[in-house]
Design a protein around this nucleic acid. Structure first.
Length: 617
DNA sequence: GTAGGGTTAG
């Protein structure tokens, strides 16, 4: 008789009798665990046909199954439609609330919570952790404090799960005093509760307090978990504490925590930031399971070590492998590498990728949006594409002062002094206050466009008009500008009279100007200063020997060279590079290793010829 | 039948 009522599905074969309530619930739990939505839906339909949807037990299991299978709308449907056939108990409410939290939807939790209270269903220790999380997720600190009050009323303030959630909630708002009070009043503390405190201290930058928690936790006889070590590693990374980072690496190995992806990711980051790229690579290579963090972190390691070519290579590999999609973190890590190498093709590729993936556009986090577009503008600017940079700038929905500074500096770098200054004036029109960086851009614009009078005016007005005290960088721009314009005496006067201490950079700029205009006396003064301030830097010796060379004082040239050897200063060979096709071609001084060497040098020679011809006519 | 921590960029 039963055989006609239901066709036994595959997953019931293991049961000796026909499915009952328990077997349905067990099967639904399995589907939830394996995120097997298809199977779960099948079960749902059998339950519907066979009249199993009137029990609060099956409703709860169904809601849970749909939530865990990321089908929250189905979970909601079950919850809403079942209200007519069976009254929702605390289990059903808890399941749908937990479902929303699992699917990162804090807002609807607050509505269901309200409904629950109106229906007179009593909250329990399962309800509170999720509701607390919802209030902090909705940035509702008042709501959080109210729920905390209710926790006391329900006598759940000593429950570890509830207590951890409250501590976590307060720490999210950086309310350390409130969090600490709850923490202190807990009769027992487990590793999760301690982790919350460690991460709370880490978040507000109190690193030593975070590390102190680790000591106390161990005194309490608690074993640090994988979660503890990732938190601690991030603290050690920020402190640049390689010694203790290595100790944690040892502990992690001993505990078998290296099988945890997040633990390894934190180790990669720690080694990378502590300038141990090889150790970071070792960890990365040894990982069986990797996630987007691992990729991003290893790209970050190369970016931070200044290996821009490898950074781009890894990005290409990521695109080719198609295992992980580059996200906003990947893109912000890779873009500066493009800027450094002036790798326009890569930069454009990333820009196109961002557009197709919608990265940096209508992002939930507006700061992200601004930041990423700033990085794109910077890339275009450094690659000499001011037109493209301007287009991005004009289309940005929110600009911060960095956005304006990047544009001004871009124009300045490429000699578009007037464009830089006009943007600077526009900045004033939209009531944005220029900062130190803006003024460096403005002065640099005057420098590169030869706007000597304007540059001098800006410098003298900085304090009175813009309330910015000129730094050595600002003076460097103006001294460089005066020097290039041949106004060596004025430059020297400013250099000697400026109220802040001159560094080697500003003296070197002055030295370069002396060389350009062949003033050996001032050059000697400048060179002594530079060598004094930075004896290991080769640039000043080279400039000085060039000055003597230009003036035909060859004995002194060899003196400088000898001095250089005595100080064991080596000239770092200069190099340039250009992106062509799918690779970046690097050329060192006197470098003849390029496969197309003959072609390149013959083209170079014909350029020299044309230059010579132009000069003659 | 239901619950709590972590890591990557500026």
């Amino acid at each position: 008789m039963y055989k006609t009522a239901i066709k036994t599905p595959n997953f019931f074969r293991s049961f000796s009798s026909l499915p009952n309530l328990t077997s349905y619930i067990t099967s639904l739990q399995l589907c939830a665990h394996n995120t097997n939505l298809r199977q779960g839906k099948k079960l749902h339909s059998y339950m519907l046909i066979n009249g199993f949807l009137t029990s609060p037990l099956t409703i709860t299991s169904l809601i849970n199954m749909y939530s865990k299978c990321n089908a929250i709308s189905d979970a909601v449907l079950v919850f809403n439609t079942s209200s007519s056939t069976c009254e929702h108990n605390v289990f059903a409410y808890n399941a749908i609330i937990a479902g929303f939290i699992f699917n990162h939807l804090p807002k609807p939790v607050l509505r269901v919570y309200e409904k629950m209270r109106l229906a007179g269903v009593m909250m329990d220790k399962f309800t509170f952790p999720c509701v607390i999380k919802a209030f902090s997720g909705c940035q509702d600190v008042v709501g959080l404090k109210n729920v905390h009050g209710l926790v006391f009323k329900f006598g759940l303030d000593h429950d570890l799960f509830v207590g951890s959630a409250v501590v976590h909630g307060y720490l999210k708002f950086e309310l350390m005093v409130d969090a600490h009070q709850v923490f202190d009043e807990m009769p027992d503390r487990d590793v999760v509760l301690w982790n919350a405190m460690i991460n709370g201290y880490a978040q507000i930058g109190e690193f030593d307090n975070a590390l102190d928690c680790l000591k106390k936790l161990r005194v309490d006889g608690i074993v640090p978990s994988r979660f503890t070590v990732t938190g601690i590693l991030s603290v050690l990374t920020l402190k640049g504490d390689l010694y203790n980072g290595k100790a944690i690496h040892g502990f992690v190995t001993k505990m078998g925590y290296l099988s945890g992806v997040a633990v390894c990711n934190a180790l990669i980051d720690m080694y990378g930031k502590c300038k141990c790229s090889l150790d970071a690579l070792d960890i990365f290579e040894g990982m069986v399971v990797k996630d987007i963090y691992s990729w991003n972190s290893i790209i970050g390691v190369h970016q931070q070590s200044g290996d821009h070519e490898e950074t781009l290579k890894l990005f290409d590999q990521m695109l080719r492998d198609k295992v992980f999609c580059p996200d906003i973190v990947t893109v912000t890590t890779v873009l500066p590498a493009c800027s450094h190498l002036a790798a326009l093709r890569h930069g454009k590729e990333i820009h196109a990728y961002m557009i197709t993936k919608g990265l940096g556009k209508e992002d939930e986090d507006r700061d992200n949006d601004t930041y990423i577009n700033n990085a794109i503008m910077d890339m275009y600017g450094k690659c000499g594409c001011m037109h493209e940079a301007r287009l991005v700038f004009e289309h940005m929905s929110s600009k911060d002062s960095a956005s304006w500074n990047i544009m001004i500096m871009g124009y300045a770098m490429h000699g578009f002094g007037n464009e830089a200054l006009s943007l600077f004036h526009k900045m004033g029109e939209v009531n944005l206050t220029p900062d130190e960086v803006t003024l460096v851009g403005v002065l640099s614009a005057c420098n590169h466009a030869g706007l000597v009078k304007e540059g001098q005016e800006f410098l003298s007005e900085m304090k009175s008009k813009y309330k910015i005290s000129p730094t050595v960088e600002h003076y460097t721009c103006v001294i460089d500008m005066l020097g290039r314009a041949g106004l060596l005496d004025q430059a020297y006067k400013l250099l000697s009279e400026m109220p802040i201490e001159a560094n080697s950079v500003v003296w070197r700029a002055f030295l370069a100007a002396c060389r350009l205009h062949g003033d050996a006396n001032l050059a000697e003064i400048a060179a002594r200063k530079v060598i004094d301030l930075e004896p290991e830097h080769c640039g000043s010796y080279v400039l000085m020997s060039n000055v003597y060379g230009t003036l035909g004082r060859y004995e002194e040239v060899s003196d400088v060279r000898l001095n250089m050897r005595q100080q064991s200063v080596k000239k770092t060979p200069g190099c340039s590079w250009i992106e062509f096709g799918d690779r970046v071609h690097v050329f060192g001084t006197g470098d003849r290793t390029h496969p197309d060497e003959d072609l390149i040098y013959s083209e170079l020679n014909s350029l020299y010829m044309s230059m010579g011809l132009c000069h003659m006519t």
